[in-house]
Design a protein around this nucleic acid. Structure first.
Lengths: 129, 129
DNA sequence: CGTATATTTAGACTAAGTCTAAAATAAAAT
DNA sequence: ATTTTATTTTAGACTTAGTCTAAATATACG
């Protein structure tokens, strides 16, 4: 395990963009931000790199249901909440309990491997208006 | 509210297929099952109908992250778990607690409107092998 | 150095779903 | 009952997000 991670210049540049972003960018947004830095990689390279970075655990892929995957450079265990109005995504660190996961294993007889909670709501800013 | 639901023949047929299915079919699978009944609607009609049925609350749309949305005729509050090996989707009725949702509202300052938990694991059948 | 392996590139291709404009149905108003 | 208005359906073009392929580059190994 943890065999050396192979960060090619492309992968490194993409990883950098993700870590410099706090808004969980999509692949399209990552491509835009690379362009600002005068970096332009093949379409497929960006997707391959994102898959690679996800596989080696450097980033997390978020599938929030709304079309495009988003990428998160914070790989600590956490969940996300998305504003139904403006679409922004915020982190949630209050996680579900181990007891709850155990109850589900018991109910379903599955071996539970992962859980993702997708919360939707109204963010403070949008609520003001 | 609850103004009368307008179930055209197409919408009714699609709703029937969903209720007769216990495996949370995708739009493509619904189209297949309609074909078995010698019903063939325009591509767009199926999607429009699915959106309509979802909006009026007769079915639930599940976005499990893997490409296509699935549709569920059981609109009681519940969650889902998907087998990472065979892809089947089962229901989960052990829901998160109200306290947990309150804690999240407190942490994020969002008004929490909905939550969807996507659990992944290994189903009993796949575990045997 | 020469060969094997891995990665990138450009562009074709796919899957899932939306959009549009015309035709068909249904409902409401003379 | 016929016209007008609103709603739905249809076929097919289009969009978005992403994968696949084959050739070209780059890197690693003996």
């Amino acid at each position: 395990m943890s065999s050396k991670v192979n960060l090619t210049p492309q992968r490194k540049a993409i990883y950098d963009v993700i870590r410099e972003s706090s808004d969980h960018p999509t692949a399209a947004e990552i491509i835009e931000r690379l362009k600002v830095k005068d970096l332009s990689f093949a379409y497929g390279t960006v997707y391959n790199s994102l898959r690679y970075l996800t596989e080696v655990g450097l980033v997390h892929e978020l599938k929030l249901g709304d079309a495009a995957s988003r990428y998160d450079g914070n790989v600590d265990e956490h969940q996300h909440i998305q504003c139904q109005i403006c679409g922004r995504v915020d982190e949630v660190f209050t996680d579900v309990t181990k007891e709850w996961l155990n109850a589900i294993a018991k109910e379903t007889d599955y071996t539970v491997k992962s859980h993702q909670v997708i919360l939707k709501g109204i963010c403070p800013q949008c609520r003001e208006q």
